[in-house]
C-alpha cells in the first residue's frame, strides 16, 4: 500500500494493533502486518517514534520486562485514554470510509447510467 495512504493514520493503526493486549515493538509491527494481511508493510523502525509519542500523549503506558532469553524488553499497553482515543478515531474513520464508499458507488452509477 502507498505510504501516502497511511498519512495521519499511523497513530490509529498502532493503537488498533495494541487493542488486543500489551505488546513490544516487534510484536506491534507483526500484528499490524498480520491484521492488514501484509498491506501495511512499514519500515520497522517507524513504529518506535510513534510508540514513544503515544506514550508521551498518555495514550500508552510501558514498562520493562525480561524475556525467557534474559533480554530486556519494553512492553506497551493501552491506557483508558488510549482506548477512548481509539474509539473516537475508529468512529471518525468509519464515517469517513462510509462516505468515500458512498461517493465512489455514486460516481460509478453516474459514469455508467443504465
Amino acid at each position: 500500500m502507498e505510504g501516502q495512504m497511511l498519512k495521519g493514520h499511523l497513530d490509529m493503526i498502532v493503537l488498533a494493533a495494541l487493542s488486543s493486549g500489551p505488546a513490544h515493538g516487534y510484536a506491534v509491527i507483526e500484528e499490524i502486518k498480520r491484521r492488514s494481511t501484509g498491506a501495511f508493510d512499514l519500515p520497522e523502525g517507524t513504529i518506535y517514534p510513534v510508540l514513544h509519542r503515544l506514550e508521551e500523549a498518555g495514550l500508552l503506558a510501558s514498562k520493562w520486562s525480561t524475556t525467557d532469553a534474559g533480554r530486556q524488553r519494553r512492553v506497551y499497553a493501552m491506557t483508558r485514554r488510549g482506548e477512548r482515543a481509539l474509539r473516537q478515531q475508529r468512529a471518525t474513520w468509519m464515517q469517513f470510509s462510509g462516505a468515500v464508499h458512498a461517493l465512489l458507488d455514486g460516481s460509478r452509477r453516474w459514469n455508467h447510467p443504465a
Partner: peptide, 20 residues
C-alpha cells in the same frame, strides 16, 4: 535517557527479527 532506552528496544527488536 531516550538514546539508552531506544538502544535496548532496538536490540531486542532486531534479535526477535533474526529469530523469526
Amino acid at each position: 535517557p531516550l538514546s539508552q532506552r531506544v538502544r535496548r528496544e532496538v536490540e531486542d527488536h532486531l534479535h526477535d527479527a533474526v529469530a523469526a
